[in-house]
Design a protein around this nucleic acid. Structure first.
Lengths: 190, 190
DNA sequence: CGGTCGCTTTTGTGATCACATTCGCGTCAT
DNA sequence: ATGACGCGAATGTGATCACAAAAGCGACCG
């Protein structure tokens, strides 16, 4: 989910087991779970790799994000008190640091934490879980995107989101979230 | 997904293995996959049961369906030629038979097949997959619903959906799908 | 009669093994 | 130089086992 793995990277059960000092059995269960959620691809021969998404698939996943995440933000809005907004700003600060350090994985992690922090307030665990499976599918691809993007600052839309939360501006919030979600991924489909 | 299991029904790895004449290993993998998708619940002690959904959870899952399925229908609309519409009507006929026979599991199966047949035309596999995980979570609960409902005919909304497809009426289609999805589940939250 | 304690059975976990398949790579022939 | 062939290493699969935890159940006590 955080882009630790590149698209198309291969994994082996024994290799994962060694990584975490366990046998093949727990590795298999973890892999099967990730495969079920689309976070890993199981080839016909049983080999496991991270997904290499086609442009159509990326657009589709972006469309799903654009559908669900504004809804989550909208549900979180009435419950977003000042402490939450300040926390979001702190995360934006962390994002700025990762940008300065060219830390791609850290950037993705902080970016998703920004969204998750907001959506947790929506009190919609199933919706959030679905969204996270989409993030999971996009993880390796996002890394490829942000590596080639070379940001210089915190995404503008994150500031718009915070501003809309402060103002209690529901349509503005939906729009800002939708833009934030769509924009980065649009750049990927080359 | 089809309501073969009641809400809260317990399963054991060895039991599943015997059912399909395999050892515990494949049972575990299948269970882990279903747990990952929310189709089964893993208790703290590792025991596995079907989910007993709270009213809030049911409403949330209904909201997700109401969000995604109209979108799928809308995307399928331009590609819905006459053969597809006739197939949908055939499925409605099957639904009528299951209603007459008070075959609850058959009803759920045919109902979902109606939706899946339409959505397959949307050319949006990720969106369809997400929707099916929602169906999976609702499976056992749906059975409880339709058992208590005692339908007498094919849902009105299914006919509205077919009519909207024929007319190329996109707003009408979205509305009919949304109603079909919401209506049944609203009845569950008592 | 009801509740609590303790034992037996059931169950999930993680490790290991044998086996079939597949992959990777070097060799050889054209 | 290029392609196909073949062999050895690596990999996934399913079964089985030992173990610890939990659940079910009965007996015993108040």
């Amino acid at each position: 989910m955080h882009g630790d793995l590149r698209p198309g990277e291969a994994l082996t059960l024994r290799g994962i087991g060694k990584m975490f000092d366990v046998s093949m059995t727990p590795s298999r269960e973890a892999v099967r779970r990730l495969v079920a959620d689309g976070g890993l691809i199981l080839s016909a021969s049983g080999r496991v790799t991270t997904p290499e998404l086609s442009n159509e698939r990326i657009e589709e996943l972006a469309a799903i994000r654009a559908l669900i995440e504004p809804e989550l933000a909208s549900r979180a809005l009435p419950r977003a008190h000042i402490a939450l907004i300040e926390r979001l700003q702190t995360i934006n600060g962390t994002i700025a640091e990762t940008v300065a350090k060219h830390d791609e994985v850290g950037y993705i992690r902080a970016n998703l934490e920004f969204h998750r922090t907001l959506y947790l307030r929506a009190q919609a665990p199933a919706m959030l879980a679905l969204t996270e499976t989409v993030w999971l599918q996009l993880g390796p691809t996002m890394r490829a995107l942000y590596a080639r993007l070379n940001r210089t600052e915190v995404p503008h839309n994150h500031r718009l989101i915070v501003a809309a939360l402060r103002a209690g501006d529901e349509p503005g919030l939906r729009l800002a979230v939708r833009s934030d979600v769509t924009q980065g991924l649009r750049m990927l489909t080359v």
